[in-house]
Design a protein around this nucleic acid. Structure first.
Lengths: 176, 176
DNA sequence: CTTATTTAGATCGCATACGATCAAATCGTT
DNA sequence: AACGATTTGATCGTATGCGATCTAAATAAG
């Protein structure tokens, strides 16, 4: 059966794409090349780096049944008796609309426990469950493996982290 | 009706979360504080920066009916006659499983056109549609607005971008 | 004490991302 | 021509993120 491709792309407006060649110097910090559309966009560099980090972590965490965000939650919980959903949101820069479904999945997987605070029934306290603590121990070496995969001087990484954190702070100032 | 909270958190394993205090020095490049679980994780800094960028761009792009990724696609298409799905994937570091639904939504919105290559029917060529070109013109100033919101020296941003790009490259090497 | 306001999570819909799989078209070899 | 392997997108299921809205609990006002 030829000519019946899964997605034939029906009419489709052809359109005069002559309107190209627009500056498009997003978060521009330098003039751009034609082949590399995002060569000047700091935002894209951060975006691409996050994709790369996420993919590398995914490879290392998937065998333990963890996603990167779930790993972050476990790390955050490993350093405290428990944390409320709001406190988790503060350290992760996320809201309950993201955290609640995430924490429910993690609870279903036996990684964390969720409990209403008896003093304030609005508050949900999240803590590491036994299985979660076990997984935390298993993935303890993952960050070092990632670090080992990066062939750059530790000092450079320190500087980079400080710089990115400053940038982050600046970006979080404005939205208000 | 009291005591019937939307999500009561049924049995929930209480669990001895005593297994905390684990090093958890993810992508660690320095010793950590108790209150800041990710103070040493470069990966988290990148993650948080990406969230912050995305939120700021969302504010500026939403009035034009664009998401950040859709904006990136338009920028990429503004600099070329057209691009195949694969070529878009190369510059955006994404695969067809993400791009195809995205491009279909953008086509439905009249932002881009999708066409099978007549020479090779496997290939889909994506180009800027009239409405897409118009939106590109409208959002031309967005990157400068973002840049203006960042109270840091341009030189620092240049350096930061170079450093992040190097990091990105390193991270993309390993997965193979 | 009763009502209005605030606060903490939860819910819903939509838009990314990605692993796994599939279909169609092309290419390479015979 | 024919058939297997490769290439290019598309499809599906799941997990983030987030705007908008909702509920219940706690608090403030009267």
């Amino acid at each position: 059966m030829p000519q019946t491709h899964p997605d034939p792309i029906d009419p489709a407006l052809t359109g005069p794409q002559a309107a190209a060649q627009l500056a498009a110097r997003g978060t521009s910090v330098a003039p751009g090349e034609p082949g590399k559309p995002f060569a000047n966009m700091l935002c894209f560099s951060v975006y691409a780096a996050q994709l790369a980090f996420n993919r590398l972590y995914k490879q290392l965490l998937a065998p333990h049944g963890l996603t990167y965000l779930q790993y972050l939650v476990l790390v955050a919980l490993a350093q405290a008796e428990d944390r409320t959903v709001g406190e988790l949101g503060e350290v992760l820069f996320l809201e309950s609309n993201t955290l609640t479904p995430l924490l429910k999945r993690m609870e279903a997987a036996g990684l964390v426990s969720r409990r209403r605070d008896s003093a304030d029934e609005r508050v949900v306290r999240v803590a590491l469950a036994p299985a979660g603590a076990a997984v935390v121990a298993q993935v303890e070496c993952v960050p070092l493996d990632v670090l080992a995969a990066i062939d750059l001087p530790l000092g450079d990484l320190h500087q980079m982290k400080s710089a990115i954190d400053r940038l982050s702070q600046e970006l979080r100032k404005t939205p208000a």
